[in-house]
Simulated scan of single mutants.
Amino acid sequence: MARSVLVTGGNRGIGLSIARAFAEQGDKVAVTHRGSGAPADLFGVTCDVTDAESVDAAFKEVEAAHGPVEVLVANAGVTDDTLLMRLDEGQFTSVLDTNLAGAYRVAKRATRGMLRAKYGRMIFISSVVAMSGSPGQVNYAASKAGLIGVARSITRELASRNITANVIAPGFIKTAMIDDVTDRRHEEILANVPAGRLGDVEEVAEAAVFLAGASYVNGAVLPVDGGLGMGH
Rank of each mutant, 00 (worst) to 15 (best):
V7E: 02
T8R: 07
T8A: 10
G9I: 06
G10Y: 04
G13E: 05
L16D: 07
A23E: 12
E24K: 14
G26H: 11
G26M: 07
V29C: 09
V29E: 11
V31R: 07
T32M: 07
H33K: 05
R34K: 12
A38P: 06
A38W: 08
A40K: 13
D51Q: 06
A52L: 12
V55D: 06
A58F: 08
F59N: 02
K60P: 00
A64C: 03
H66A: 12
V69K: 03
L72C: 09
V73I: 15
A76P: 03
A76C: 09
D80Y: 06
D80Q: 13
D80F: 05
T82Y: 08
R86I: 01
L87G: 03
L87C: 06
E89W: 08
F92C: 07
F92K: 09
S94T: 14
L96H: 12
T98D: 08
A103W: 02
V106I: 13
K108F: 01
R112I: 15
R112Q: 12
M114W: 00
M114A: 05
R121A: 00
M122W: 03
I123A: 02
F124W: 04
F124A: 11
I125M: 14
I125D: 01
A130H: 06
A130M: 08
S132E: 13
S132V: 08
S134D: 14
G136E: 03
V138S: 15
N139A: 15
G146A: 09
L147E: 04
I148L: 13
V150M: 15
A151W: 02
A151S: 12
S153T: 15
I154M: 15
E157V: 04
E157N: 11
L158P: 00
A159H: 00
S160W: 00
I163Y: 02
T164M: 08
A169F: 01
G171Q: 07
F172E: 02
D179Q: 13
D180I: 01
R184A: 15
H186E: 07
H186L: 12
E187R: 14
P194V: 12
A195F: 13
R197W: 05
D200M: 12
A205C: 05
E206D: 15
A207G: 07
A208M: 07
A208K: 10
L211M: 09
N218D: 15
V221A: 06
V224F: 05
G226W: 09
L228T: 08
H232W: 10
H232C: 03
